[in-house]
Structure formats: structure tokens, C-alpha cells
Write a protein that binds this DNA or RNA. Structure first.
Length: 289
DNA sequence: CAGTCGTGGTA
DNA sequence: TTACCAAGACT
């Protein structure tokens, strides 16, 4: 039965996979690593142009490691969560110094790199190197919740439980296992979507526990409500960082006054940026690291 | 474990 | 317009 489930997804994937940059022949492991960093909480459509620029400028980890981290933050532009740019730069330094400039292929070594967690480590091992590991992202958790568990939404993430659930479905053979991981993500991304799933087009329709149960509403714990962005510290941090990105000389405190009127909130945001290593005091002002 | 961390598109 | 969502990681 799991065999049928997996082969259905694999067959569907081979017929329906989108032509994305990181799926092209000859795409490097470094390219895969960069794409996975960028795709953490950022939509595919916004990632693609930044990724192309990034890999043209820094085609290897050593190329990125050779420039100051602030250059990575600048090239990150408005992808969001700029700490990822800092971590990606730090990962490039570690790869250059500890791994001879070659992106590691084992999960343990990948997990040891900054900014790489359970998802990204396995995604790189599987998509760049073809290893057999369960990959679990938000798409896959949703597909399993519906097709297997009959729930409209997944419960809050649990690495142990989620990895075990995906492992139970994973084909034993190597090429199929990798295609199953990619296929489950793709299915969640373009068919079994969060808002308006296209169940009529779903290859798993006949096997879907959620459909069989009549699409019951989700009963479990609600996910934490995301706080409003407008007026938040995050927005202030974003505004300040945009100023630093746009300037190649220290931005003065006076210039930052124009960015946000509330001095207390502005200072709090600035302190946070300095703590995170995204801003550096210099010459009475602030610059990128 | 819950809070924090950007930004833009869509319903 | 507000609210939700997007290939998560770290503290």
C-alpha cells in the first residue's frame, strides 16, 4: 500500500515537475545550498532572480567566503530574514575552511553548518547528492496530514514525528526515494495547497484519507497567529537595514531618525541588528558588517 | 516549547 | 483592508 502511494507520487512528479533553476542538469551542490537558504520562508517566484544573480557573482563557496558578510546581506536585497544571508556567508566560510570548498554530502556535517537545520540538511543531501533521507518541509507535512492522516492541516511541527512519518512512506530504492521527496513537496506546492487545494487534479485523490472522510475541518491546536508587521520592530529593523544596504559609508543616527519617528523603538531595533551582527557601529554611524 | 525574525503577493 | 501564507532556524 505505501508502495502504491509512493509510486503514484513519483509518476505524477515526473510528468508534472516545474522547470526550476535548481532542477536543471549540472546545477551544483553549492547552487542547491544557496537555493535552499533562500527558499526558507520565501516564495519560489521571489527567489529565482536573486539566486541567478548570486550564483553568477559567487559561483563557489570560496567566492562568497572571500567577501565581507555585508556584501551577502546587500545582495540578499529584500528576500527577508536577512540573518539567512549572514548564515549563508558563514556557511561558505566553514565549507571553505573545513571542507576544502566542497559542500558536504552527509547530513551530520550539513547540520553543523550555520543556518542549516533538519529540513535544509536533508534537502541538500537528497537533492544535490541523491542520498536517501526523509525530507520534511511545510508542504510535505500538509500532504501527509491530509492524504495519510485525514486531517485538513498538520499539527505543529515535530521533527521526530514528522521524519518518522515520512520515513514510513519513503521508497527503499535510491532514485525513487529522491523523486518521492521532491514529488511530495511539489504536490504540496501546486496541488495540495494550504488555501484552495485542487483536489480534482490530485493524483492521490483515490487514496486520500481527508477526501475519504469528507474533508473534515481541522480540529487540532491552531498555529500561532503571526503578529502584525505594520508598526512592528521587524518593520523598523527592515527599514534601517534597507538604509545600510543602500549606503557604502556609515549611516548617521540623524539619517536614521528619518527612517522611523519613535526613538525608543528605533534604538531597540538598532540594538537588535547590532546584536545579530547585521549592523556594525562605525565612525559614529552604522554600516553593514 | 514558544517567541522572534522580513517581505510581498493574494483572497 | 486585514489576514493568511511562503522549500525554517535559532534561542
Amino acid at each position: 500500500m505505501p508502495e502504491t502511494f509512493a509510486s503514484t507520487v513519483v509518476d505524477w512528479y515526473h510528468a508534472n515537475r516545474r522547470d526550476l533553476p535548481w532542477r536543471r542538469d549540472g546545477f551544483t551542490a553549492w547552487g542547491t545550498l544557496v537555493s535552499e537558504f533562500m527558499l526558507q520562508q520565501t516564495p519560489v517566484s521571489r527567489v529565482i532572480p536573486r539566486l541567478e544573480e548570486w550564483l553568477t557573482r559567487w559561483p563557489t563557496p570560496a567566492d562568497l567566503a572571500a567577501v565581507p558578510p555585508g556584501e551577502a546581506v546587500r545582495a540578499w536585497q529584500s528576500l527577508g530574514y536577512p540573518r539567512r544571508a549572514l548564515w549563508l556567508h558563514a556557511a561558505a566560510v566553514a565549507i571553505t575552511e573545513r571542507h576544502g570548498g566542497v559542500v558536504p554530502d552527509d547530513v551530520e556535517a550539513l547540520l553543523a553548518l550555520p543556518g542549516i537545520g533538519d529540513y535544509t540538511a536533508r534537502a541538500v543531501a537528497v537533492f544535490a547528492y541523491g542520498a536517501r533521507h526523509p525530507v520534511v518541509d511545510t508542504n510535505i507535512r500538509r500532504v501527509i496530514a491530509r492524504a495519510v492522516d485525514g486531517q485538513g492541516e498538520p499539527p505543529p511541527p515535530s521533527a521526530r514525528r514528522d521524519l518518522a512519518a515520512m520515513s514510513a512512506l519513503l521508497p527503499r530504492e535510491l532514485p525513487a526515494a529522491a523523486a518521492f521527496n521532491a514529488g511530495m513537496m511539489e504536490l504540496g506546492a501546486i496541488v495540495c495547497t494550504a488555501r484552495a487545494p485542487r483536489c480534482d487534479d490530485c493524483p492521490l485523490a483515490l487514496q486520500c484519507a481527508w477526501r475519504a472522510a469528507g474533508y473534515p475541518a481541522y480540529e487540532g491546536p491552531r498555529k500561532a497567529v503571526q503578529k502584525k508587521y505594520e508598526g512592528s520592530d521587524r518593520q523598523v529593523r527592515g527599514r534601517i537595514l534597507a538604509e545600510l544596504r543602500a549606503s557604502h559609508i556609515p549611516v548617521t543616527p540623524e539619517e536614521l531618525e528619518d527612517v522611523w519617528p519613535d526613538a525608543a523603538q528605533r534604538d531597540r531595533a538598532l540594538r537588535g541588528l547590532v546584536e545579530d551582527g547585521l549592523a556594525v557601529p562605525e565612525g559614529g554611524g552604522y554600516t553593514l558588517p
